[in-house]
Design a protein around this nucleic acid. Sequence first.
RNA 1: CGGAGAGUAGCUCAGCCUGGUAGAGCACCACGUUCGGGACGUGGGGGCCGGAGGUUCGAAUCCUCUCUCUCCGACCA
Length: 439
Amino acid sequence: MRLSRYFLPLLKETPSEAQIVSHRLMLRAGLVRQEAAGIYAWLPLGHRVLRKIEQIVREEQNRAGAVEILMPTLQPADLWRETGRYDAYGKEMLRIKDRHERELLYGPTNEDMVTEIFRAYVRSYKSLPLILYHIQWKFRDEVRPRFGVMRGREFLMKDAYSFDLDAEGARRSYNKMFVAYLRTFARMGLKSIPMRAETGPIGGDLSHEFIILAETGESQVYCHRDLIDMPIPDEGVDFDGDLEPIVRQRSALYAATEDVHDQEQFEAQVPPDKRVSARGIEVGQIFYFGTKYSQPMRAFVAGPDGQERPVESGSYGVGVSRLVGAIIEASHDDAGIIWPEPVAPFDIALINLKAGDAATDKACEEIYAKLTKAGRDVLYDDTSERPGAKFAAMDLIGIPYQIIVGPRGLEKGLVEVKTRRTSAREEMSVDAAVNRFAE
RNA sequence: CGGAGAGUAGCUCAGCCUGGUAGAGCACCACGUUCGGGACGUGGGGGCCGGAGGUUCGAAUCCUCUCUCUCCGACCA
């Protein structure tokens, strides 16, 4: 992408509404624009990151055996009346009437609808286990939206729902999502820690929150230090095999959010030098809730004995749009964002220090063409801005690598390659730079 | 939902107390000088001062109502 033909509205000054660093950087780097309290438009750069995160989530859901669907944002109120949630949910649920005065709602979550879909088609244990998921916009009319996309009213969420014949099966599904989440967040360069958590209004009796440690996190969390750098299961992990050891290895160590924290247990179970008490950002949560929805909605399946019973379920959420903010909270410096490579909007920023200079233009065009052909996403700054402004802008938007091309270096046949994360710079020939990034 | 604050140019803000018909910096446009870590000069464009009502000869400024946004708290993927 040539910057001169792109849409990248950067702000030099920080909009006054932004309080936390990720929000400030998202506005300054032109990732989002606020349209109302807790409601954001995603601009090109932010949209790219959002899509990359979404794709990682999708790949790991698929790997775990979940099946993607797409449910609507608007749902009929009657569906929610079956479980009693239409009245129970409160003002956070946005209620809407259509032209025929039919009551609808903008979905804050999808247990009811997915259970409706399930019961319409599945009758036998032979169709189980089944995990359905979708990645869709949700709306929760929070009293007080804040922190940019970290706590918006409209947000993109991956929500998965598992269906099993019995509690044991449900536990296996829970474990699949548990492991999938470990991999998902690790692939984005995040260190996530599963912590025991309250189940909240969704209900159930087994739940973990996946927490990223960050100073600006919304909740206070307590855990054993060894959880932070525990190895992540590799992509060869067998999701049809026994995942219990992986889950147990983590569950064995103390980790709890404020809501369920027990200071006595914490001190009893964790030696002083291993105690971590910190702020955390919740990026995912998984629940097992049994027959909470299947019972009232009569989502029954026949077991091997021919007897019908309510299906056992769980739900599993990942805050996709929240992750954009969470990643920035975890990865930035004074100059701007530092994207982990897998979620970076572009792989490489190519900086032409003297657009209009024949030799510099030629070298840039060559690098741009070759890297693009090699499948790399290159943002080519072909504008005639001053070098200082270009450097500042590219540092702000945080693309992992910069190839800096200017007449001074080219006289010696050299360009500069800068790694954003470490600020390390190396000089090398045009060919060497191309080869370095062309696989 | 309780408490606090803010709405003036695309952004950051001044002007409001003490009414006289709108400003600065950045950004934008033109020209010139510049050009390896956010340049400078000259000229220029851009604002029904959130909205409605009221007071007044006259309202960004005073009064009333209203909408929106932000922050603290209670609540939440």
